[in-house]
Design a protein around this nucleic acid. Sequence first.
DNA 1: GCCAACGTTGGC
DNA 2: GCCAACGTTGGC
Length: 139
Amino acid sequence: MRYWLFKSEPDKWSWADQLARGDAGEEWDGIRNYQARNYMREMQVGDRGFFYHSNKDRAIVGIVEVCAPCHPDSTTEDPRWECVDLRAVASMPRPVTLQMCKADPRLADMVLVKNTRLSVQPVTEAEWKVICELGGLQA
DNA sequence: GCCAACGTTGGC
DNA sequence: GCCAACGTTGGC
């Protein structure tokens, strides 16, 4: 199993919105970046990811699971763009802020810290465990 | 609201 | 295939 991180502007699609979908999940549509799309192509059903609020919040607020493999993005006719479906798994007991990630030397190489503009990104197992610990969750 | 970083587009 | 111009993302 691999680990990922998904960014969303809370004004457009928030953790509350994701939670409201429950186990049905939701298409992670609207990605128009090749690197991000390529990562979604690598994903498998059952992979886990962090749900990150950009802009105002700047924090990891929940955990999601890939519940459908990569398929065409229904919000565009352009065949280049594809996406997976995600369902909410758990909320972070304590949100893990970007500031906390930057402050922890174990997370110095995180894509979240190093490449601020990539909206879908891989997370290493070590990073996953550190963030779960910071967020008050069992990894 | 500003701006840095990055990705994309298009002229040559 | 290079690179300038432009657009977008996202932190601050």
